[in-house]
């Protein structure tokens, strides 16, 4: 299992645009990918309903987890999306 804790840098938190880009990227992976907020159960990172339901705000840390081949590269990509202040407009 590869895990990584990342800060949400989008100024408005994980709202529609970054959430959509995040989920699109996670959904391309063949393996399960989860995301969780501290103290809460992990949710499916391929579900936009689950990701919006995290209610992750700017500056909050969330933990990404995946296993298997390519997990590191996948988490790199997801981290990149979360690290952007505003991936284009929303």
């Amino acid at each position: 299992m590869t895990e990584r804790t990342v800060k949400v840098m989008s100024r408005a938190g994980l709202h529609a645009r970054p959430a959509a880009l995040f989920v699109q990227t996670a959904a391309r992976a063949s393996q399960d990918v989860t995301v969780s907020k501290r103290g809460k159960d992990p949710v499916n990172a391929k579900s936009i309903l689950a990701v919006l339901g995290l209610d992750a705000h700017h500056g909050e840390e969330i933990t990404l987890a995946a296993r298997g081949e390519g997990a590191d590269d996948l988490l790199d990509e997801l981290e990149h999306i979360l690290s952007q202040e505003e991936p284009q407009r929303a």
Partner: peptide
């Protein structure tokens, strides 16, 4: 079933 309603475009910037 979860339905998102987004009022306006770029309105996230209005905080």
């Amino acid at each position: 079933h979860g339905v998102l309603v987004h009022l306006g475009v770029g309105t996230v910037e209005l905080e």
